[in-house]
Amino acid sequence: MNVFRFAGDMTHLISILVLLLKIYTTKSCSGISLKTQELYAVVFVTRYLDLVTDFISVYNTVMKVVFISSSLAIVWCIRRHKVVRRSYDKELDTFRHWLLVGACAVLALVVHEKFSFQEVCWAFSIYLEAVAILPQLVLLQRSGNVDNLTGQYVFFLGAYRAFYILNWIYRYYSEQHFTRWISCVSGIVQTALYADFFYYYFISWKNNSKLQLPA
C-alpha cells in the first residue's frame, strides 16, 4: 500500500459518500444516471468474486464489501425508494448500457489472463468499469447544469482513477511490480474519459461559478 493507492481508494470512497449524501439530504437523484450506477453494481459484483475464495487483508475485504453494498443500495434507492425515484431523469438517461455490458463480455472472453471463470469475470469488470461513467457523462451533458454534489461526485471518481495510475507508476519503480496490462490500458482509457469533464470542472472552480457543460 502506498500513498497514491490509498489516496485513490479514499477518493473512490468519498465519491460514493458524496453521492449517498446528495441522495439522502436532497431526497433526490436528479442528475444521477441509474445506468451508470447499475454498471458499477455489476462491476463490483463480478470483480470481487475472490471475496469468497481468497483473503488478502482486512482492509481489502472491508473495502470490497463497502463497494458492493453501497452500489446495490444506490441502485435500490433510485429504482424503489418512494420519494427518491420520482426525481429520476428517466427521459434524459437513455444510454443503451446493456450494449456496453455485451461488448465488454465479448472482449473479456477474447482478452484475459487466464481462461477461468473468475479471471474472465475479473477482466470483464475491468473493461466495464472503464466505460461505466459514459451514461453519467451523457446525462450531465444533456442536462447542462450540474449541481454541486453531482459535480463533486464525478470529480472524485475521476481523481480516484488518476491516483491509481500514479500508484502503478510508483509500484513499478519501488516494487518492480508490473500491473497487469489489462488494468493499465483500461485505467488509462477510463481516466481519459474524464479529461473533458475535468477541464470544465476546473474552469468553474477557478471562476467560482456553477459547473456548466457545453451542449
Binding site: 493507492r5 470483480r47 475472490d50 481468497d54 488478502i56 487483508s57 481489502n60 470490497k64 475479473w122 491509481y164
Partner: peptide, 10 residues
C-alpha cells in the same frame, strides 16, 4: 506462485 493472479488492488 500464489500471488500470481491474486488481485490485491480494488
Amino acid at each position: 506462485p500464489l500471488g500470481n493472479l491474486l488481485h490485491d488492488e480494488l
